[in-house]
Nucleic acid binder design. Sequence first.
DNA 1: CTCACATGTTTCCATTGGAAACATCAACGA
DNA 2: TCGTTGATGTTTCCAATGGAAACATGTGAG
Lengths: 199, 199
Amino acid sequence: MATPPTSQSKPYHHGALRQALLGAAEARLAQSGPDGLTLRAVARDVGASHTAPRNHFDDLTGLLSELAAVGFERFADHMQAAAAEQVAPMARFNATGRAYVEFAVANPGLFQLMFRSERLDAGRPALRDAMARAYRVLQEAVAAAHPGRGDMSARVARAWSLAHGFAMLLLDGRLDPLLADQSGAPEAMRLLEAILAID
Amino acid sequence: MATPPTSQSKPYHHGALRQALLGAAEARLAQSGPDGLTLRAVARDVGASHTAPRNHFDDLTGLLSELAAVGFERFADHMQAAAAEQVAPMARFNATGRAYVEFAVANPGLFQLMFRSERLDAGRPALRDAMARAYRVLQEAVAAAHPGRGDMSARVARAWSLAHGFAMLLLDGRLDPLLADQSGAPEAMRLLEAILAID
DNA sequence: CTCACATGTTTCCATTGGAAACATCAACGA
DNA sequence: TCGTTGATGTTTCCAATGGAAACATGTGAG
């Protein structure tokens, strides 16, 4: 009764389950939001049993953390690339802030996951490193724009808070009343420009 | 076999289940975080069956939304009270911002729930009204501090983003590296003061 | 070769949110 | 006074989830 290995029989081992799971997880996150991201659903999408992820990530927390790590790497990349297009320190600073918000708008589910610490394990090396890198990108943008003067911690905290708060409120739809309801990202980025123009 | 109504037999009807449930929900939220807040757990805490909440709130979403509404009312109260202690418009503006963060620090679970829109139903009248009131308090603080000049939407968005981002990053522990790890709220508020002092 | 180990699967369990049917009680009208 | 009606609760059932444990299948190193 043993099934002969026909061409259509799936191999017992997937071969690249880890990557497949991360990919499926991100797809689900993008399509169904942070709550549609289920261990079982992701496993199903890949055609694996729901306990298979355990071998690669320990936990649901583990899977989410690794996914968040990927997110932070891309996040850092995006900000770095945006900054690299500018030469003047202040322009680089603003470009970094814009990139912060752009990333959040382009990857809402992923971004929210990245900042939902209760579902993540910040102890995971991949996540820890990726977060540290993203933070460093931010910090450097601030330091370059305001060399030496004043409380640097406060300047970093301020810039970060502004970008982060704007992104969070935007994703949560809280800024909708402020965005002449033409809806969409262009309006949001215009509001951000107006914010940056103050002072 | 019918249990005679002894003095220790619980009455079939609770009498104030709705309030009891909201109270228990908030207690759980405060103690176990947003994930410990379970429909069944809350019902258990109150000594009711797990379907009892359905009569007062429809859903888990309903319960969370009503709780968030309570949160927004208190949030508005707190900011309003803080502003009322000041006379100068700019002082009122800053006091409102401080109150924003203070509330978040004092009620982390509740605050996070209030801004987790995917678990809330913003269509609920109580929530809708409470959110609108809190928003109005913010808006007035901004308008009073910067009468007439400039893009008012941008000023509101900026002040809100700054306060909200700071609060969120703080609750998520993201600012810990910036807070000389003497830990705790006082340090955080000092960082906020430093932010407000810039420019 | 063969055997240890990584990678997967099956099976089981407790917990959760919700639906449906039923129980209790209080208030109002004939 | 007495029903009956609707609000408030309970019991029972169900599907989905995350996880534990035991087992299956390959693969590569000695």
